[in-house]
Design a protein around this nucleic acid. Structure first.
Lengths: 213, 213
DNA sequence: TCGACTCTATCGATCGATCGATCGGTCGTC
DNA sequence: GACGACCGATCGATCGATCGATAGAGTCGA
């Protein structure tokens, strides 16, 4: 069989949790989407909350790995932040459902299940914080409140998952380049040296998420 | 009585819908928060969905009115966008629950209830689109994809409701000024003429939402 | 080669709990 | 005595989850 039942359950959950929310999605909705009975679902998962937590940690784990791979050897802070922005935007554009679940359903988790998810999220945001702090320290970036700027840029980039459509006028490359330009400008770094890492981001996204970019 | 039951129901709904989502909030949760029985709730509202729709339309109506008031007589595009950004950020900072419900729970509405909400949202975004288009036309702004930039800035500003705390290091004034600066930079308009409308935004927010700013 | 046995994948039926909503009331106040 | 405010009890529906069962594929000793 090309797609296992286990994979169908996961895909169904990502799709429905993103579209209707965790609490808005019933076990029977999940079963119908995965073409299984509601009882069979429990052969592949623990509780509904376990399923959500697994999706979130796996998705964040992938994003964190991808970001670390893409940044490897990129020392110049502006270049590193460009890479982070482009990777984030590409990930949110090619996996909007997954990223929407991660971004919107954290509050549906119990405190115990939430902790590891928040830890992964913090580790990921640390990459952004370090790149911005390095850029500020070296004089490349000029921003009065680096932490606020980081949050603003992250929210800006995550928003892509809420509206981007591949049928729209922008290609993924154009989208990533535009956001990277917005971020550089916001950081007072409009005339940064030529950016050469876009291809590497595409390659990492393609490999980590297994989709053509 | 200082606070009517009707107001308590509304406040309870905003608080709980923002914290746990529409589907994650039960009628009994609402009743407990509003200090009423679940039966009495229905003396003040229609269905649970009616309550959500009323909160969303009222909240968006207020935001749209406030934006129109704040922009009245502001002709210079950069100045107009600054005003919109500051108003949006202030509104999201002082009313995070309301704005989170508006931003996150649209998909919980049935198509019939959703239409007027989306129409209001579109009218509001039109103000942003016009300001950006005017600025691009007059050469004040430089952006390759105005529509994408508008979405990026809107998501960036709306994100404030997800993290801002008045106990943090930034005052509301500093927050609004910083976001307005980020937006101007992103639009390639870093050296815009002195901004004088911050006081007007504070006044409008204070009046429309009835809170001290 | 053949039964006996095990394991995986799946299901219909159903559990107790909770859901949103409604009923027929009881208060106090004007 | 009419009315607005409010509630205990309860409705049918749906919730997440579990039950015992079955069909089929693989395993293994005789």
């Amino acid at each position: 069989m090309a797609v296992t039942s286990r994979e169908r359950v996961r895909l169904a959950a990502v799709k429905l949790f993103a579209a209707k929310g965790f609490h808005g999605t019933g076990i029977r909705d999940l079963a119908q989407e995965a073409k299984l009975s509601s009882a069979s679902l429990y052969h592949y998962m623990g509780t509904k909350e376990d399923l959500l937590a697994a999706i979130m940690t796996e998705s964040l784990r992938r994003l964190l790995d991808a970001a670390e791979q893409a940044c490897e050897g990129v020392d110049e802070p502006a270049e590193r932040l460009r890479t982070l922005v482009e990777l984030h935007v590409l990930a949110h554009a090619v996996q909007p459902s997954e990223t929407r679940v991660v971004d919107n359903e954290v509050s549906a988790l119990s405190p115990e299940a939430r902790a590891p998810v928040v830890a992964l999220r913090d580790a990921y945001e640390r990459l952004w914080a370090d790149a911005i702090a390095d850029g500020v320290a070296s004089g490349t970036f000029a921003t009065a409140h680096p932490a606020v700027t980081r949050l603003a840029l992250l929210e800006m980039c995550s928003g892509v998952a809420r509206w981007y459509s591949p049928r729209g006028p922008l290609s993924l490359d154009q989208l990533a380049a535009h956001y990277s330009e917005l971020a550089m400008r916001a950081l007072g770094c409009a005339f940064a040296s030529g950016h050469t890492g876009a291809g590497r981001c595409r390659e990492v996204v393609s490999r980590v998420w297994g989709v053509p970019v």
